[in-house]
Structures are given as structure tokens and as C-alpha cells.
Design a protein around this nucleic acid. Sequence first.
DNA 1: CATCCCCGTAAGTCATGGCTTACCGTTAGC
DNA 2: GCTAACGGTAAGCCATGACTTACGGGGATG
Lengths: 107, 107
Amino acid sequence: MAYATTLTVLADPTRREVFERLRAGPRAVNAIAQGMPVSRPAVSQHLKVLKDAGLVEERSEGVRRIYSVRREGLAELRDWLESFWGEALDAFKLEAERSYRTKQRSK
Amino acid sequence: MAYATTLTVLADPTRREVFERLRAGPRAVNAIAQGMPVSRPAVSQHLKVLKDAGLVEERSEGVRRIYSVRREGLAELRDWLESFWGEALDAFKLEAERSYRTKQRSK
DNA sequence: CATCCCCGTAAGTCATGGCTTACCGTTAGC
DNA sequence: GCTAACGGTAAGCCATGACTTACGGGGATG
């Protein structure tokens, strides 16, 4: 269920860039917005979305908010993807088998 | 680069539903659209997007087009996700270490 | 050849969501 | 206490993209 959220959240390029910047380590909002093609409020909004999705966590340090990556937030999506290896292939083979036999029979 | 495409393509719920339906095995367009909350042309459009993204492949069987999952299409996204395990943690630790030392020094 | 399904494509509508500017609360420094 | 930096939130604008209906082409079947 939540892998859906992760997908939609990471689909946006700007938001993904924000996320990637945090990958190198925790950063304050200003630092993240630095050199980005969008305004700082935009970055704030993206961070909120990332946080709500559990992909990022926030900690206050004086007047600044330090954001960092929450790797566990990616777990569900990873598992979902992983579930395609193996299973999907087997299903395919079975289906191919079935439709092949069906055709043979109807000849 | 291509994992970005995969993300945006799989972000849409309807399109994901189409993709998931193919998971059980190859299907014709009609069969996929069957019981879906959107029209058949909508499904066709989603299939085109999925195909362009390399997530799905198409084969003609008489008058019908049979679509099936291309697991390799998910590989890049999986690798990208996988790259967060380990690396991200190390970067975090390093960063935490660094900022800790910096603070200690400035006391 | 006529007809009926299959399905892809075109054109047009409408909602979603990402961006900007403007504003406000909060913390630190003088 | 004043001022300045940090950053979250509101309101409004606008583009993107997901739908719909309408159509047309191609393969099967009588």
C-alpha cells in the first residue's frame, strides 16, 4: 500500500533532487535549496511531502531544521520491486504453457 | 537516468493497476480493461506509456495485441533503490561524526 | 464483399499538483 | 527589545497529464 506513496512522491524530479541531495548527509533547508532551480519555499514543500511519506526525517538545531534520509521509507517499494523477480517469471511460464495447450486442443 | 522514467510511469495508480494485472501473465487489451474503472482507450494509452518505458512488451496474435511484463524494465529502479542500502548509512555516519567533532571543537 | 470485433490515435476537457510571492512565527546576536 | 536569518504556510497561477468520445484501419468470419 505504502509503496504507492513512495512511487508518487519520488516521481517528481525536483523532489527527487532534494532527496538525492540528502543522500550525501543531513542538511538544513537553506543548504538544500542552495543552487536549486526553484525557490526555497518550494523546497520546503517538497520536504514536507517527503517527510509525510516517511522518506525523510527532521530534527531542529537552533533556528534551523536538519533533514536526513530515512532508508526504511524505501523498504516497501524495494520489496515490491523484488517481488517481481522470480514470481513474475513463473507466472509467465505457466500462462504460456496454459495458452499453448489450449491452442493445441482447439486445433 | 532511466529509473526516473520508471518512477514517473509507475506513479499513476491506474497505470500501476494495468501493470499489476499483467503480472499474472500475458493479456490482451480487452482482458486488461475488463472491470477497470476507466475506458478501454485509456488502458491503451497506459499500455503505450508502459511500453515506451520498457516495462511491458507487445506481441500480435491475430487481431489482438498481447501484452506482457518486461522484468528487466524494473532493473534500473531496483539498482537505484539498492544503492541506498549501505552507502547512505555510511554517509550519514560520516556526516554525524564530522558535525559532532565540529561542535566539540567550538565549545 | 459485408460485417463485426479488435485496438490504436486524435481532439478536447478538466483536475491535480508544483511553483511563486507574500506573510508570519521563532531563535540568535547585538 | 530590535533586528536579522531561518524556514514553514497561504493563496493563487498555470502547465502537465489522465480521462472521455469519436473515429479509422486491419484482421477474422459468413
